[in-house]
């Protein structure tokens, strides 16, 4: 399995990268850790004419607090996210999600930006990025623009990013008080990809009722989505096992689940409900300050 030949560029700066992207447009692919792009190129599902390697660009791998948000550079690896002390304290949903990706070797190489830009329907981050209402920063020679997570995923392997644009940063909010978040995943046992992955973020009001609920689901449909019907069923209610289970039944509402040799559409729909319930239970327990 050898990729088709391509012209290789290793720009030294982000500016040089953006100029190359502007020049080559959709004939170019950006290579970061290579764990989404190279498998596709080896299978010849992708055969870009130009490969622009940004893997060693300086200053694009970081996790830091910025204007009340946490800013994460696109080249930050899954392993860095998994072990980041700042994220574990301020936004533990992301480390919990990163820890579920692939295996040690994949997490050592794969990057947050690469994974999101690839938008695999079975990728893990999209669920959490949606549940966190994250912002995605896209850079081009024209400047930068901010895309909210809800608008970012367009379809299978398709995002809002335009040719000539690069995903440069992701911004997530720190965990608010009385908030719990959790990511629960059913792995495809061979590849480790998500058959279903559910990220839930719940905030309790002072009286113990659910003030706000955000649920992102990956693996089920052609793109990750917010489970609006689940969220609606939770808002303003006092959490109970029955409430969570009933709400979780709406997990795949309005979605036509994918069907493949690993999981039929019916199975995915059923598992979406099961894993949504588990994620809600864990998120609630954490919001209540219990260990979960």
């Amino acid at each position: 399995m050898i990729p088709a030949a391509f012209e290789y560029h290793v720009p030294k700066t982000l500016e040089e990268t953006l100029r190359l992207l502007e020049r080559h447009g959709d004939e170019a692919k950006v290579l970061a850790g290579g764990h989404s792009l190279l498998p596709l190129m080896k299978l010849r599902l992708a055969a870009p004419r130009y490969v622009i390697d940004i893997g060693r660009l300086r200053g694009m791998s970081y996790i830091r607090e910025e204007n009340g948000q946490i800013a994460i550079g696109a080249l930050t690896t899954h392993a860095d996210l998994e072990s980041s002390a700042l994220l574990l304290m301020r936004c533990p949903l992301l480390p919990e999600t990163a820890a579920e990706i692939g295996d040690v070797q994949v997490r050592n190489r794969g990057t947050l930006g690469g994974s999101l830009a690839h938008a695999d329907p079975a990728g893990d981050y999209p669920a959490s990025i949606l549940a966190l209402d994250a912002e995605i920063i896209a850079a081009s020679t024209a400047g930068t623009r901010t895309i909210c997570a809800r608008d970012f995923f367009v379809d299978m392997l398709t995002t809002q990013l335009r040719p000539g644009e690069i995903l440069s940063q992701v911004r997530v909010p720190p965990l608010a008080p009385r908030t719990g978040a959790a990511y629960c995943k059913l792995h495809q046992p061979a590849s480790g990809f998500a058959i279903v992955g559910v990220a839930a973020r719940l905030t309790l009001g002072k009286g113990g009722k659910i003030d706000s609920a955000a649920v992102g689901i990956t693996g089920v449909g052609p793109k990750a989505y917010r489970a609006a019907a689940v969220e609606k069923a939770l808002r303003g209610k006092k959490p109970s096992p029955k409430l969570l289970a009933d709400a979780a039944r709406h997990a795949a509402q309005g979605v036509e689940p994918l069907s493949d040799l690993h999981a039929s559409a019916e199975y995915r729909r059923e598992m979406a409900a099961v894993f949504t319930r588990r994620a809600l239970e864990r998120a609630i327990a954490r919001a209540q300050g219990k260990k979960a």
């Binding site: 399995m1 290579g34 764990h35 190279l38 498998p39 080896k42 070797q105 050592n108 061979a190």
Partner: peptide
Amino acid sequence: TSLCGACTVLLDGKAVKSCTVL
């Protein structure tokens, strides 16, 4: 296909699957 790990080497001290690195 980056699954089996037989090709694992250390790249700058980190385990990587060398079939998925150029």
